[in-house]
Design a binder for these strands. Sequence first.
DNA 1: GCTTGAACTTCCAGTTACTAGAACCTTTAT
DNA 2: ATAAAGGTTCTAGTAACTGGAAGTTCAAGC
Lengths: 130, 130
Amino acid sequence: MNIGAAAEHSGLPAKTIRYYEDIGLLRASRATNGYRDYSTDDLHRLKFLQRARSLGFTVEECRQLLSLYADKDRDSADVKAIASNKLDEIDKKIAQLQSLRAVLSHLVANCHGNDRPDCPIIDDLAGEAH
Amino acid sequence: MNIGAAAEHSGLPAKTIRYYEDIGLLRASRATNGYRDYSTDDLHRLKFLQRARSLGFTVEECRQLLSLYADKDRDSADVKAIASNKLDEIDKKIAQLQSLRAVLSHLVANCHGNDRPDCPIIDDLAGEAH
DNA sequence: GCTTGAACTTCCAGTTACTAGAACCTTTAT
DNA sequence: ATAAAGGTTCTAGTAACTGGAAGTTCAAGC
């Protein structure tokens, strides 16, 4: 299967698939014409990558997950550790964004948003506490 | 004032200040020895940048905000527009992360995390719906 | 006056995960 | 035969820094 079809089936752009090959995430065999040729197993790996990435795992984490995926004797604890870590990171990120949101929404709510120059948002950025 | 002191007062690393100069966010005058020399106004701008960045504004947004900061005849509506936009982005990001979090925490909760190989996290990534 | 170390200078490379585009080759359809 | 579609490689650009190298300049101590 050519890269275009593999892209379609996996939901990853062809460019991205080539990139993943570049960084050694997976290698496809080549047909006689030099085109990449994807097997059913390759397709599974591509879909696996697509799902893992969309869940927020980094490419390096995907590399680990792929190798755990390939290892039929893995400990589920190893997988869980990676996922739990990611969960913690997501929680931290959410908390951070929520605190940003609170500050920013307070500022926005207090700005008249008219054609006059006085603006509590600018004042706050300038360090002029009200 | 030298860049080291400016860094200390603004809370921005010296490297970052030089970078901001590189991309034209602000320019400092030079002393006779070639060292950058920061005025009180420069310091205000640096602190302004530090606050705006920590609120999640991109460098390009900071550029706009800085120019509105400098413009005493600005319309507060222009500032509010940028901030409201950012608020929307933050909201979208939070929603996205929360939905990720839901999926991931479900997977983590269902994985035994022991020394056995069966793992619902891997199964899900592999597309094997339970 | 000399030396040492900190702080300054510039410039280049690396980070993350792609994405755009150029130049070229192969396949498929008309 | 030719044109469009899809494949190939390679380079460079994105965001916002950060690290490090190689080379001044300054301040302090002897």
